[in-house]
Nucleic acid binder design. Structure first.
Length: 419
RNA sequence: GUGGGAUUAGUUCAGUUGGUUAGAGCGCCAGUUUGUGGCACUGGAAGUCAUGGGUUCGAAUCCCAUAUCCCACCCCA
């Protein structure tokens, strides 16, 4: 049997990894500029954490988790997302007694057992962040603006922001009753999924794809019209904050979010370029989560961005991403003495951070030239007995063929300063 | 979990109604006299035709199963 990468996983090859490097560095930089610091959390956690944190009733927990028993008999789960682990760490490390807000970003892989399609993998990458301890709308505006700044800095344009408020447990409970009253007389006309949703999570019936065209769904009362006074004021604050810094948004009453922990503000950045999922980045507030995982009552908010989807968008918008020249110069050798000299020179250059290459294949001189050309190395120098005798070496710029002559003794210094 | 399409060299793909030794472009390796790259020319390596069964004198080709990939449903990043 041929060995291959498991379903839903993929290699990121050297030919494309620089795109990831750029995306990562960009995200880290933007987060840092907002005062967020990186946290690294375990790839796997106690299964209970996700059951409590993500929510027992969610699809993610019910059918998509990679769960196994380890040799000590513990139930372990590969993280299906980042928030639960960060919240666990927040509690475990007593961060609630550190100066608020606590703001951290992460850069992780996550795992969900799902069927693969465009923009969806079983192992996938997420950039995300969490902010704890701040209740007011300002922090909502801040994290949305982080995404906005990041997209701009990475050269993207026109990614639509959709926002909504799904209220707090209080107004949501009241609204659920209103919603059930609305649907109850018409349940026999609804799809099977919706019949299940009716008791479990009536909110989801609103964005049901199957029943979307039915008047009963279209005319359903909207949560956003039934927020309590506090939630309404909070949402107004978010909108005003976004407007104040000029971030465009549309209110989408149908954003519900698939994870149980969200409260109040929820948002998505959506695009047509990332498959039918559409969501590049999704997030929101989760004021009850820390408490439900066993910590103090601390409000929180965060988002996660699908890196594969983000990069799809970068490609779709044809944002140019240049591959860096890690190797600056290639030394072609004409003799054994030259090889020795080149070996020492390369060592010295690398000690000083200058990337360089020499022949490792025993190639003929002409073939070395060919290799350097195809590898796209920007500079090269030919070294043979003549150069060693004369003490002068010509460094050639491949792009235009121009040459500079350098004393052998100055070669390393010249490369450090000029390449 | 459910549907549709696909799978032949590293890669992109041909491959006739089932018929000898399965081909091409690109890429890779070497060479075109040990002094200057991308181009050109010459040569070379490279395939269990996804896997396992079946039909047949004979299967890359027809049938069944499985795996994987792509797309969609569900749901999500």
């Amino acid at each position: 049997m041929k060995l291959q990468a498991p379903k839903g996983t993929r290699d990121i090859l050297p030919s494309e990894i620089y795109r990831w490097h750029k995306a990562r560095k960009g995200f880290h930089d933007v987060c840092h500029s907002f005062g967020y610091e990186e946290i690294s959390i375990p790839t796997f956690e106690d299964t209970n954490l996700f059951q409590r944190g993500v929510g027992d009733t969610t699809d993610v927990v019910q059918k998509e988790m990679y769960t196994f028993e380890d040799k000590g008999g513990r139930s372990i789960t590969l993280r299906p997302e980042g928030t639960a682990g960060v919240v666990r760490s927040y509690i475990e490390n007593g961060m609630s007694s550190m100066p608020s807000p606590i703001r951290m970003f992460y850069d992780i892989t996550a795992f969900r057992y799902e069927n693969v399609q465009k923009g969806r993998y079983r192992e996938f990458h997420q950039f995300g962040l969490e902010a704890f301890g701040s209740e007011g709308p300002a922090i909502d505006v801040e994290i949305i603006s982080i995404v906005n700044v990041y997209f701009k800095k990475m050269g993207l344009s026109h990614i639509a922001l959709h926002i909504n408020s799904i209220g707090c447990p209080k107004c949501r409970a009241a609204y659920n009753e209103i919603l059930k009253d609305h649907f109850r007389p018409h349940m026999d006309t609804m799809c099977e999924d919706c019949k299940n949703r009716f008791e479990r999570n009536p909110l989801r019936m609103i964005d049901c794809k199957v029943d979307a065209e039915k008047d009963i769904v279209k005319n359903a009362p909207r949560l956003i019209d039934h927020l309590c006074d506090e939630c309404k004021a909070h949402f107004e604050g978010v909108k005003a904050g976004l407007e104040a810094i000029g971030i465009e948004y549309t209110i989408d009453p149908n954003i519900v979010r698939g994870l149980d922990y969200y409260t109040r503000t929820v948002f998505e950045f959506v695009s047509e370029n990332v498959g039918t999922q559409g969501t590049i980045c999704g997030g929101g507030r989760y004021d009850g989560l820390v408490e439900s995982v066993g910590g103090p009552h601390v409000p929180g908010i965060g988002f996660a961005m699908g890196v594969e989807r983000f990069l799809m968008e970068v490609e779709a918008q044809e944002v140019p991403v240049e591959k860096p020249d890690y190797v600056k110069i290639y030394f072609a050798s004409m003799s054994d003495d030259a090889k020795k000299f080149i070996g020492k020179t390369c060592y010295d250059l690398r000690l000083n951070g200058v990337g360089c290459e020499q022949d490792l294949m025993g190639r003929a001189f002409r073939a070395q030239m060919k290799y350097a050309g195809k590898a796209g190395i920007p500079y090269m120098a030919v070294i043979g007995d003549d150069e060693l005798a004369s003490g002068k070496i010509k460094i050639k710029k491949m792009e235009d063929g121009s040459e500079v002559e350098v004393e052998t003794a100055d070669l390393v210094t010249y490369c450090i300063n000029n390449l």
